[in-house]
């Protein structure tokens, strides 16, 4: 414990946090990379008529699995889980290395992130749905918060207008 009221460890004495977090990242990135590469190859080989319309995992005509979107969604899911995994790994490592204040800080960050996810899930209207005024206002607030997280730069857009007007999908270039 040292100046400033925070633990002041020698970084050379706690190398396991960096290597463990880096290892967790490598695992998540490698798995998602393989799945996404397989999805892109499968999409490139997919017959053009099957790529039309909004891509769903189950083919509505035949009831069979469409592998390109299935692999893509799986890869994206692993990708989104990777930052959560690295936070959990950091919590465990800091807890075990007796730097428990950082374990608590990491846990607080994880709690805030999961709370934001929960709020976003409640506020975000499903694609194609017309949200109520109340939901729309909540979504706009959440949207402003999300823009912070996503680190994007573009003019603010109302979720209401997006969900009501954006019926077109990105499909033309792939068929």
């Amino acid at each position: 414990m040292a100046q400033g009221g925070l633990p002041h460890p020698d970084p050379s004495q706690t190398p396991d946090v960096h290597s463990a977090v880096s290892g967790a990242l490598r695992l998540g990135v490698t798995v998602s990379l393989v799945l996404l590469a397989a999805a892109v190859v499968a999409a490139a080989l997919e017959p053009p008529h099957r790529a039309s319309g909004w891509p769903s995992v189950i083919d509505p005509a035949t009831g069979s699995v469409r592998w390109p979107p299935a692999l893509a969604f799986a890869g994206l899911l692993v990708l989104m889980a990777t930052p959560i995994l690295r936070l959990v790994v950091a919590i465990v490592c800091y807890w075990r290395s007796d730097e428990r204040v950082y374990a608590w800080i990491a846990a607080a960050v994880l709690a805030v992130v999961l709370s934001s996810v929960w709020v976003g899930l409640r506020a975000m209207p499903k694609r194609g749905e017309r949200p109520s005024r109340q939901v729309s206002d909540a979504a706009n607030g959440a949207y402003a918060s999300m823009m912070h997280s996503s680190r994007l730069q573009f003019s603010q857009t109302s979720i209401r207008s997006v969900s009501c007007t954006d019926r077109t999908t990105f499909k033309g270039r792939f068929v």
């Binding site: 909004w54 959560i84 960050v109």
Partner: peptide, 27 residues
């Protein structure tokens, strides 16, 4: 990356992520 999860998951769950666009982008 940590904070972007709060944005990405709702987009994903609400069906705004087009796999034919997002997969090559992420790759």
């Amino acid at each position: 990356g940590v904070t972007a999860v709060a944005t990405a998951v709702p987009y994903y769950a609400a069906g705004y992520v087009n796999p034919y666009l997002a997969a090559p982008c992420a790759l």
